[in-house]
Amino acid sequence: MSYEKVEVYSPRSLAEALEILSQKKEHIKPVAGGTDVMVMLKDGVVKEKELLNLSYISELSYIKEKESRILIGAATKYREIRRSPIINAYAPILIEAVRQIGSPQIQNLGTIGGNLGTASPAGDSIPPLYVLNARVKLQKIGTSREVQIDKFFLGPRKTVKEPDELITEISVDKMEPGSYYFFEKLGLRSANAISIVSAAGIINLENKTVKYLRLSLGAVAPTVIRATDAEEEAKGKELSEDLIDRIAKLASEATKPISDIRGTAEYRKKATYGIVYEALYRIFKGYGKKIEYGFEKTS
């Protein structure tokens, strides 16, 4: 255990934070909710001697609509996401995932930007972001850039973010009314569990024919992945048990899992099949979750 002293900077504005970061670069570690950073500090894996505390920067915490997109500030806490009428109305798949992150205590502190910053393939907010075509906004003094979510991650704990950049915003597509969706997570217990396998899917049906399927998988490869072969296979076909079987098989084939104390590679492949099969089967049988845009009409 490391008790080394760290210095904490708590800027009140984004500009100030970026200024500090531009000077200290890789010598300072951003921290939002701290639910990952505190654990890393204790384990002695944080090399930086200084922390850049983002939790007082209110301009990094928001949920807004912008035409067909939703903009989420990087330091928005899971609790805010769960309560947000906008997310509930237009991106409920994210609610499904956030609901299953940690426990109420973790959701009260943890942020979506932190989940991206940690860049674990088991990060539970990430699979929904893949199927919502998320873009990650990275900002440094003077400039900013936007990166497609699947270009953001390079591997476990590795991203394209430069040391002088902060994640400032995550933007996602609004889901199309009438689409079905799911987020399923398999862990060894019902709370505070790290995913062994997770899957997020959005499926749009016209009568029984698949207009499109977007399917992403977590904890089964060095980063979260899109199961593109499975998506292709589904396109334009009538949903049937047979098609579901093929989709689930292709999803399973897309994985490159490892073996660890949370599960063998072989099991992760089998469970990927199972989790995808069951989720699609529920939709096929008519008891899947469907987005209706309910909020808009009642306001």
Binding site: V39, S103, L188, R189, S190, A191, N192, A193, I194, I261
Partner: peptide, 14 residues
């Protein structure tokens, strides 16, 4: 597995 993260015990909801 030497702590609560890695040595998984049931929680009340289990």
């Amino acid at each position: 597995n030497i702590n609560y993260t890695t040595y998984v015990v049931p929680v009340i909801t289990d």
